[in-house]
Design a binder for these strands. Structure first.
Ligand code: ZN
Ligand code: ZN
Ligand code: ZN
Ligand code: ZN
Lengths: 165, 165
DNA sequence: GATGCTTCGTTATGTTATAACATGGACGAG
DNA sequence: CTCGTCCATGTTATAACATAACGAAGCATC
């Protein structure tokens, strides 16, 4: 039999996602960290999900490969992926989305880029923005209070263009 | 004995807080809702807390008056106070702060004013802002995506002026 | 005093996240 | 080689946050 007969056994995800996983793996390698099998699988699941999955959604899916996966398994992977800037947590949803910031970003793991998220309450879609005007306004407002920003959570709930029929 | 000897039995909170509770009670009455005893006590606890308390912190304190208070007791009160615009939930902390928006606000219960929160990671203090520039920038960014904003969560973590010694 | 509404009590359960400690593999120092 | 160290993971248990469901008590209104 041709060993390339289907590809499903080697690559559990669609080609487009496998490509992004490959990039992510390279990026981690460059930074001296490792995108291990579990971490890679979790990232793949997040990339493949139709809606941002929660930790326990991911856990359930991960059990396809790791029958004994437990909450710490998934939370450790999520922590790692967040530190590496590969995913973001949406606080309002307790759910996770892939970072859409350019993957070839040269900022490195400590990029910690500031993003804003538009969450559609109907279709559940989340769009990541990086709007400079918002950041500037926020910086100014914080500075006026003598406040030093370290981390921002900007999440907007509403209706996406597609759902405003 | 003078019935005004201490005041502690009638008024469990300091005078300044009792005054705010009185205002809140009036505001609710005007809107046709009732700031019942439990709700008033929860609001008082939030106003009196040194740091934003979580639901279970409040529950524990509430048991001073209501020995059998259970999670639904506190969550119902918190829902009410949030609907009335008297408090805000800080998502990052799963904790609650009093609204510092002018209490005499004529917007009514449905005011739903948009606020931003500066959270000090050292002292835990939370400051509520209402910065128009931020709202404008956010509105523009959302509009550019065809997104209709219904609700915003803007929470910034960092160091407050006092803690940047 | 019957009706309808809001509020509250009570029990149970669901959901999200972490603590604590044990295991195993990779890798360089000695 | 083999010891020690680091990192990643396994495993069990529990903490922390939130809601479902149902019934009874208060209160207004007729
Ligand atoms: Zn991003
Ligand atoms: Zn939508
Ligand atoms: Zn407010
Ligand atoms: Zn501070």
């Amino acid at each position: 039999m041709d060993k390339h007969q289907s590809g499903t056994t080697d690559a559990p995800f669609p080609a487009a996602i496998e490509a992004r996983l490959e990039q992510a793996e390279q990026a981690c390698f460059t930074r001296g960290t490792r995108l291990t099998e579990t971490r890679r699988q979790v990232l793949g699941l997040i990339l493949a999900a139709p809606k941002p999955p929660g930790a326990y959604d991911l856990l359930e899916q991960l059990r396809v490969w790791h029958r004994n996966a437990a909450p710490p398994t998934i939370y450790r992977a999520l922590d790692f992926l967040t530190e590496q800037g590969l995913i973001h947590k949406i606080e309002r949803l307790s759910a996770f989305v892939p970072c859409t910031h350019r993957l070839n970003c040269d900022h490195g793991a400590e990029c910690g880029h500031r993003a804003q998220f538009l969450i559609c309450r109907v279709c559940g879609h989340v769009r990541e923005l990086e709007d400079l005007d918002i950041e500037i306004a926020l910086s100014r407002a914080a500075q006026a209070q003598g406040f030093r920003i370290e981390l921002t959570t900007i999440e907007v709930e509403g209706l996406c263009a597609a759902c405003r029929s």
